[in-house]
Design a protein around this nucleic acid. Structure first.
Length: 287
DNA sequence: AACTACTCCTGGAGGC
DNA sequence: TGCCTCCAGGAGTAGT
């Protein structure tokens, strides 16, 4: 997804509006969306209750009574819930628009919960997947993903970040932070925002950071999440406009516009072949 | 360890 | 309107 804030928005929406409800049925338009082991099928979930929803980095875990489903929205997945009996929510990639009529040509799965709640999974790039797993297989599956600590966890302290970066002194900041095995949850946008917050260039090496800079990096990640998570993320892209007064400043997607902090012109480069936005003044390039 | 290239796909945006 | 190119919020694999 969509990165941590968007996945967390989905988790919260599902937890508040769908957990505890029984699945009445479903419609699947893109069969390859579902990856099942041991002969599991969505048919076997019909009539069972959604017992819990969890998030691990950018992975979502739906715990039904018979077995579980792991959801990853990859680059362009979106989850939208609607129904007369629920307020509804939308999370994930904001294109197509959250309020688009559903289903549409990029809608691949609809889960029908009692009495009338519908959860739509949309993914215009077809990269997202839903894995069906027996309950007992879930711990091994999650362990196999080798995810680092979740950046939203209270355990994600400065000291933990320091330990996660240990041994990666030669790695550049952006690729290292994008590696979900180091820390889980950050993606291309929120890494850019965190590094801008911390006034660190994405191509600085981990080992070049002073203790003070490391603390800034940790604080920058925290500050970015503290803004993005409550609003469900997704808002800080697809706008070229300058931030409104009082709005959280951001740089991703704002090439050629003034840095919200110093007014220098935001530049776009490529780091690891990912579009990367920085302020040349606030984030001085290494040598 | 760390980097690059390539892969899975479609559609939105912008140039002409 | 159409055609073209570029680009994209992830992550696995293979090769150097």
């Amino acid at each position: 997804m969509p990165e941590l804030p968007e996945v967390e928005a989905a988790r919260r929406g599902i937890a508040a509006q769908l957990v505890g409800r029984r699945l009445r049925g479903y419609q699947l338009w893109l069969p390859k969306l579902i990856v099942a082991e041991d002969g599991l099928t969505l048919d076997q979930l019909v009539g069972s209750r959604l017992g819990d929803v969890q998030r691990h980095g950018k992975y979502l875990l739906l715990v039904f009574e018979p077995f579980s489903a792991v959801v990853h929205l990859k680059l362009a997945g979106q989850l939208v819930a609607r129904g007369e009996s629920i307020p509804g929510f939308a999370a994930g990639h904001p294109v197509p628009a959250y309020d688009a009529e559903l289903p549409h040509k990029s809608t691949h799965l609809r889960l029908d919960f009692e009495p009338d709640a519908r959860l739509y999974l949309t993914d215009l790039r077809h990269f997202g997947r839903v894995w069906l797993l027996p309950h007992q297989a879930v711990p091994d599956y999650l362990a196999g993903l080798k995810l680092g600590p979740d950046v939203l966890s209270p355990d994600f302290t400065l000291d933990l970040l320091r330990r996660r970066l240990a041994g990666r002194a030669n790695g550049r900041l952006k690729p290292t932070l994008l590696d979900q095995a180091v820390v889980a949850g950050l993606g291309n946008i929120y890494v850019d925002e965190s590094l801008w917050q911390a006034r660190l260039h994405p191509e600085r090496t981990v080992g070049s950071l002073s203790e003070e800079e490391l603390a800034r990096l940790h604080a920058g990640i925290q500050r970015t999440l503290a803004y993005a998570v409550p609003i469900g993320g997704a808002r800080i892209l697809h706008t070229k406009a300058q931030p409104e007064p009082g709005e959280f400043p951001f740089v991703h997607g704002r090439e050629g516009l003034p840095c919200p902090r110093c007014g220098s012109t935001i530049v776009k480069t490529r780091v690891n072949n990912r579009g990367t936005y920085t302020c040349p003044t606030c984030q001085p390039a290494p040598r």
